[in-house]
Design a protein around this nucleic acid. Structure first.
Length: 464
RNA sequence: GCGUCGGUGGCAGAGUGGUCAAUUGCAUUUGACUGUAAAUCAAACGGCUUCGGCCUACGUAGGUUCGAAUCCUACCCGGCGCACCA
């Protein structure tokens, strides 16, 4: 097989696996990907408030990694400015300096996590920028009261004691905090003013906006539709234009299928600004461990990529059978052909769903923690749940022998409250695994040993 | 701005003076069955308790009453309708 064919296969896989929609009408993106991938800039929008990454996000990141591997550059777009508008409190003030450090800290933990999947070190392959960089107006800047600045001109002339909230002070802060100058080394600033914003709006019709399903449904149900919500797709589109301007191009935007409309809006806005419109790659959404809703932190049905191997393994084992196929497709490297076989096998009964899930869990844990850890997690899982033995790595707790069991468990946050503890006792949910005796009284003193609380909670109590 | 309806436990949503820690559904927890799956069945689901009770909760603050989620007053927030608009 020649090199080009291998690449074509790879590219095909990238553009189809787990993909809900791929929009590239003129085939420009595909062609560029085949001929000069190192010139490609990929935009990915990141919510600044959500630093914990789960397998659902990982689907996209893994895809981005594959694109990096053939030379594409990934740009994270932090929607900090647009995030503030959506913020219901509406009280957050723009304090660029504070925010800059805060966001940089967030991004640090974020890139640390993402770094498990993506290459976030190589500047040719990775960069990030926040959209407040071009949306913030100088007058938006509010410095802490009384803050003073000093300015040194190119000819070494010093001006001290500048009131940070004066126009000049704001200008200095503005200039100093623009990432497009500091990071992307642009000489001229791109700033979206009301004028340029309205100019963009001039090209977008009402009917174009309400094509969006979500908007349509709201209108149909007689629900409210606020103007700022309608502006979101426009702002997101302007982001694409901005990235194109700052990084030279913005060839494709990736996101979940729920973002398709917004991402398409970027094409319109780029066209009207005489930029090459981005392609759009929308991913199927991964369902959570409940198998119903999409994976999200707020629904508590997520599997974090930094979850301990044992937890990760266990959570995957608890997904419903109907999700096995999707998880294989979206979370592993198993070939699509093989995934199809597994899907069919599980349905017609030739593959035991439990076996399929164990394979799945092991593969996923391997990706994030390595094969050795995955093997251990599997052994531990089998030992604990198939053979009902005491698991490894149980939380160990020290206690005094006159302590009550309730207090020990409560102190270590294993039970929520004393009442919670009573309920568990009444239901026979707490067992000493060594003596195999169920704890029957609310007022028992601690006995050393390993306890099982319900199905999933374990702890080992050592008496001092 | 005027009118009107409403704000209840994680969510949805009953309750309109005492029997209300508050019907019900979803979610959650536990037990049974299993493959720690789903489905199903059973139970629990504010906190503390010497198991008698006690304390805290129905937007916020007051008031009426022996007694308030329920009535009154003010305020805050939201939906809907009407009007107005540089």
């Amino acid at each position: 097989m020649s090199k080009t064919t291998t690449n074509k296969d790879k590219i095909n896989e990238i553009l189809t696996r787990g993909v809900g929609e791929f929009i590239d009408p003129e085939g420009i993106f595909r062609k560029k990907l085949e001929t000069s991938p190192e010139k490609i800039v990929i935009k990915f929008g990141v919510d600044p408030t959500r630093p914990d990454i789960h397998l659902g996000h990982a689907v996209v990141f893994r895809k981005l990694r594959q694109l990096q591997d053939i030379g594409c550059k990934v740009v994270f777009l932090i929607g900090d400015y647009t995030g503030q508008i959506g913020d219901p409190t509406g009280k957050s003030k723009v304090r660029p300096e504070l925010e800059q450090t805060e966001i940089e800290n967030n991004m640090k933990t974020f890139t640390d996590q993402v770094g498990k999947i993506l290459n976030t070190k190589n500047k040719n392959l990775f960069s990030w920028i926040r959209n407040s960089d071009w949306f913030t107006a100088i007058t938006d800047i509010i410095a802490p009261v009384g803050q003073k600045l000093e300015w040194v001109s190119p000819s070494k002339i010093k001006i001290s004691n500048i009131n940070a909230n004066s126009s000049f002070g704001k200008l200095l802060i503005f200039e100093k905090t623009r990432m497009q100058i500091n990071e992307a080394k642009k000489k001229e600033l791109l700033v979206i003013t009301l004028r340029s914003f309205l100019w963009s709006l001039k090209h977008i019709t009402h009917s174009r906006l309400i094509e969006r399903d979500m908007f349509k449904n709201r209108i149909k149900n007689g629900e409210e539709l606020y103007l700022h919500e309608m502006m979101y797709p426009v702002l997101q589109g302007i982001d694409s234009f901005a990235i194109s301007h700052i990084y030279g191009s913005c060839d494709i935007e990736v996101g979940g299928t729920d973002q398709t409309f917004n991402m398409l809006m970027g094409r319109d806005i780029m066209k009207m600004n005489k930029k090459e419109p981005q392609a759009v790659l929308a991913f199927k959404l991964l369902e959570g461990t409940d198998g119903k809703e999409k994976m999200s932190k707020s629904l508590d049905n997520y599997i974090g990529i930094t979850d301990e191997p044992i937890d990760m393994y266990g959570k995957i084992m608890s997904i419903p059978d109907s999700s096995i196929g999707n998880y294989f497709e979206l979370c592993t490297f198993t070939t699509l052909k093989e995934v199809e076989n597994i899907r069919k096998g599980v349905i017609n009964g030739s593959i035991h769903p439990k076996e399929a899930k164990m394979d799945l869990a092991k593969q996923v844990v391997s990706i994030y923690h390595g094969e050795k850890e995955a093997k251990q997690a599997q052994d531990n899982w089998e030992k604990t749940f198939s053979k009902k033995e005491i698991p490894e790595n149980v939380l160990e707790i020290k206690a005094n022998k006159e302590d009550l069991l309730v207090d020990v468990l409560l102190k270590n946050k294993i039970v929520e409250s004393k009442t919670d503890f009573r309920r568990l006792i009444d239901n026979g949910a707490i067992t000493n695994m060594e003596t195999e005796i169920k704890v029957a009284s609310h007022t028992d003193r601690v006995v050393s040993g390993t306890y099982r609380i319900g199905k999933k909670r374990f702890c080992k109590i050592n008496i001092k």
